[in-house]
Design a protein around this nucleic acid. Structure first.
Lengths: 238, 238
DNA sequence: TTGCTCCTCACGTCACGTGAGGTGGC
DNA sequence: TTGCTCCTCACGTCACGTGAGGTGGC
């Protein structure tokens, strides 16, 4: 680590790079964007940085390490030092937003990892991830406009099915079969008729039960599962 | 929202863009990087996407939303579907690292905001931020190599000063003055002799006391502060 | 004279955005 | 004929990395 240059108080570019841990190219770049120009040049046109330049560089590095853009740093150092607190606040808000986004992403990624590891076929895993993405987007859309007509349909179906469940109707009774048909049709519509997406959706719901989705609870989902299984087996027999 | 195209099962590029929320330019880009090419073109050379293309696009979008690069997505869809779980795990690790980095950054930024808002002069605030950056880097370096000689010096000075404090030596006694001199010299060396950085460092330490830094505790810091104040006032008188 | 450092272009990165200038379909 | 959508380049973004080809200082 060269700390003091051998030529009085002037640093050559390589010396300054060594002392700060930056690259020579980075110092070139800072000069190119008007952030830091050396106060002098040697006879052979080599850059010579003086004490003031070095002091400025350390401030640049400190602000850069806080994540500010070079344009912001330039503005703060050259034009508007008073804006410092304001710019830092704005940047903090931006970092918070990034943290929130990455947190959500992390949740999705973890589910996708679990899915990808338990699915046997890679194609199934891809379908599961696609279904997950689809569900996440529906959830976002629900945030924006809560009275979605698809949701209303599921809510009504849920209410009817719950009435059957409370009345202890067996899953193969005609009215439950009718509701199971209706559920399958809605699911078909929701997934665009894609078989593997439908299966992946069912798989995901089992692993990761949604809370109070359109008035559905785990018990109601299990009741529907039974009804769907009855429907499928009777169709296979017929 | 155009959901079904009017020409059988083929989508024009604008229709597909509307349906997916992407831009036409994005679809051009995906074709350019070999990620998604339409299966057909019209007589007038317009792109015509078919069902398989659309299905592929939805998978691309799902994987992209998980933060994968287009190159990774291409590899997963075209070459090596088995690598899915592995790639997702690696990406999760990367996201975790980013979260950790942003968390540390957030802490620094918050301190910098507090500093910038309480400092009167913007120049002082800049010096404080620079000092903070400097301290943070020393801390990192300490992680790597804990037996720093600067730290040893502070540790020894701390022990001697603590002996004085425990013996109830008054701050202006000769031996305490000698230690205060030594402390000032160390601080001078640490900051490279920069006055405003020294002041900012002192300010930061008051706002944000370091825990057990080289054996120092808040009481010991206060004792040193008194000794330094005595030294300064006696020098101003002389 | 031999290395080493320095110099100035200039293309590449990543996922597109944003025109520019021109043509096809209703 | 008028809009609208489509087409193909091609430069710009952000903070540099990575050569290429040549010169200066010990």
């Amino acid at each position: 680590m060269t700390e003091r240059p051998p030529h009085g108080q002037r640093w050559r570019i390589g010396e300054l790079a060594d002392a700060t841990g930056l690259t020579v190219r980075t110092l070139h770049h800072y000069e190119h964007v008007g952030l830091l120009a050396p106060s002098a040049r040697s006879d052979g046109n080599q850059r010579l940085y003086e004490e003031d330049d070095v002091r400025r560089l350390y401030r640049i590095i400190a602000l850069r390490d806080l994540g500010l853009s070079l344009a912001d740093i330039r503005r703060l150092l050259d034009e508007d030092r008073g804006a410092l607190a304001e710019v830092l606040r704005a940047h903090l808000a931006h970092v918070d937003a990034e943290l929130a986004r990455l947190g959500r992403l992390r949740t999705l990624l973890e589910r996708a990892c679990a899915g990808a590891e338990r699915m046997g076929e890679p194609a199934d895993a891809l379908a599961a991830i696609e279904a997950m993405s689809l569900v996440a987007k529906r959830a976002e859309a629900r945030e924006a406009e809560p009275h979605d007509e698809t949701e209303a349909a599921w809510r009504e179906l849920g209410a009817q099915l719950r009435a059957c469940m409370d009345a202890r109707e067996v899953p193969y009774s005609p009215c439950v079969r009718a509701l199971a048909h209706r559920a399958r049709a809605l699911l078909f519509e929701f997934t665009g008729g894609d078989r593997s997406t439908m299966d992946a959706l069912v798989f995901l719901r089992r692993r990761d039960p949604p809370q109070n989705l359109a008035g559905w609870d785990p018990a109601l989902f299990r009741y529907l599962d039974e009804a769907l299984a009855c429907l499928a087996s009777s169709e296979n027999e017929g």
